[in-house]
Design a protein around this nucleic acid. Sequence first.
DNA 1: ATGGTAGATTGTCTA
Length: 265
Amino acid sequence: MRLLTWNINSVRLRLPLLQQIIRDVQPDVICLQETKCPDEVFPLMELHGLGYTYTHLWGQKSYNGQAILSKHPFTDPKTYARCGQEDCRHISVRFPAFELHNLYIPSGGSGGDLPDPETNPKFRHKLSFVEEMTAWFAQTYTPESPLIAVGDFNIAPYEHDVWSHKQLLKVISHTPDETTRLEAMRASLDWIDTRTHFIPATEKAYSWWSYRSADWKKNNRGRRLDHTWVTEPLRPALKSMEIQTKWRGADKPSDHVPVILDLSA
DNA sequence: ATGGTAGATTGTCTA
């Protein structure tokens, strides 16, 4: 099974690029974040026409929004209110071999926003969101549960997940407040971050480049915000993980690129 | 020096 996760930053604007990616990658299952539209205007028929006849949508006007699109049947579609908000950031479905969770963790602010939970409510929300998910996963499953969690986590946890570890330690996405919480979430079910499995820790790996850079490729000031995690029962099924950087250079690109996970399951 | 761009929406929030 080939799984693709992508923060598409508007599914209506970027449907042509999604169609191009589908033709190129041929994923079995697609997890989207930041679809930015209510379900009734999601371009469902176009995706049905490409073979994605099983769909689980949870969108809203303007912000956030998620979709799972599949060529294979699934059961048990769920949506989760997190931090008391129905804000379309966590959905899941069940396949025969695993349960799949699509996550969109709050950004917590951007640009010059400060990573201070006391003064920045968006940052406080982000930390609470990760804490709540950590507790929820740990009480809902065990490390023996076959699970996949993918999506835009908005946290770059490792030194080489950012272009400069030192310069980003006080920048939202790479602060110790965030990375220690994400590590606690990973450890609570002994998740395998497939980045660790497939890419050497000393090798830079990015999935996002800011729109605000004059030349994203030249400066290459990226961050790895998009993740593909699996639990231990799926380790033998891991075949490959690839961050497809080339799509950042597409016409009208998303600021995130798709990540592909191949499983023998 | 506190920038810069993008998307939804149409003044302003979010990223």
